[in-house]
């Protein structure tokens, strides 16, 4: 399937590498939240810039897929543009910015505001797949903790947050428990997005290229953000609404307007915002 134009195989990776990644994906889906080691390849983009997600997408994508790539919720941020261009070039697939039209959505740091549908696949770029890494730097050790379901460390950390700050002071990459078993990093999405993972009809796949781990949340899996009965999990809310579309239910980015401290707030999800403002995708 080598493309004459690029000299590379369809979607860049050779078929053997894709098969290896798909095997890891199958295992990941079978054991939700468990980090499956895989022999990640060097990709032509730097580690830390989405190589895990790119490998997962490359292993999954077929000629009939429609790909959407977002970074910080937007289709037009430089790295999203770069990754989308990579797949247009190496796989020649159709791309879209409309959430509802995409069969595969590769993302960094956000889950789209529009509810996902059955059959859609979310592919996350993951920098540090290990939710316990900041508490225990050794990989040998954290694997044992996961195997034993020994998550006391994490609860102690959350408790210390509350005793020190009066709240759980984790605003993104907020740890979740999948199917009542593994604690998982949802990747650095804001905790605002965490509830979207719970019983989502879409398949969520997480790729960490540098750390060479793949994990998954299968459709309709229960995903619980860690909390305590007396300190229940809550998401961020803004007193403002989006300055462009007026949305009050979306994640907002703050834009500094001048040195005088004037600022306004706009939707981080550019497709959602454009749809609401009447440009781009129609509301679904």
């Amino acid at each position: 399937m080598t493309s004459a134009e690029t000299g590379y195989n369809f979607a860049y990776l050779d078929e053997d590498s894709k098969r290896l990644i798909r095997r890891a994906l199958l295992k990941a889906v079978a054991v939700p939240g468990y980090q499956v080691p895989f022999a990640g390849r060097e990709m032509p983009m730097p580690y830390g810039w989405g190589t895990g997600g790119i490998q997962v997408t490359a292993a999954l994508i077929g000629p009939d897929d429609v790909l959407k790539v977002i970074d910080q919720g937007s289709d037009d941020t430089t790295n999203a543009v770069s990754i989308r261009a990579f797949f247009s070039k190496t796989a020649g697939v159709a791309t879209t910015t409309v959430t509802g039209e995409a069969s595969i959505i590769q993302t960094r740091h956000r889950i789209p505001e529009r509810p996902l549908k059955p059959g859609q696949i979310m592919v996350y770029q993951v920098p540090i797949p290990e939710p316990l890494r900041w508490l225990e730097p050794g990989e040998t050790e954290t694997r044992v903790l996961h195997a034993l379901g020994e998550y006391g460390l994490m609860y102690v950390k959350l408790y210390e947050d509350i005793s020190r700050h009066g709240r759980i002071a984790t605003s993104y990459d907020y740890p979740v428990e999948v199917f009542g078993r593994y604690i998982m990093s949802p990747s650095p999405i804001p905790r605002f997005d965490n509830p979207k993972l719970d019983r989502s009809p879409a398949l969520h796949l997480f790729g960490a290229g540098r750390e060479k781990r793949i994990y998954a949340v299968p459709p309709y899996s229960p995903v619980r953000s860690l909390d305590f009965e007396d300190y229940p999990f809550a998401v961020q809310r803004w007193p403002e609404v989006c300055a462009i579309c007026g949305a009050s239910d979306s994640y907002l980015d703050e834009v500094v307007l001048d040195d005088g401290g004037r600022r306004l707030f706009v939707c981080s999800d550019s497709d959602y915002c454009a749809g609401r403002a009447g440009k781009g995708s129609p509301p679904q």
């Binding site: 740091h109 605003s171 990459d173 907002l252």
Partner: peptide
């Protein structure tokens, strides 16, 4: 790379 979203969350 942009980290607007996470930075906003921290903010």
């Amino acid at each position: 790379l942009p980290h607007y979203v996470d930075f906003q969350a921290e903010l």
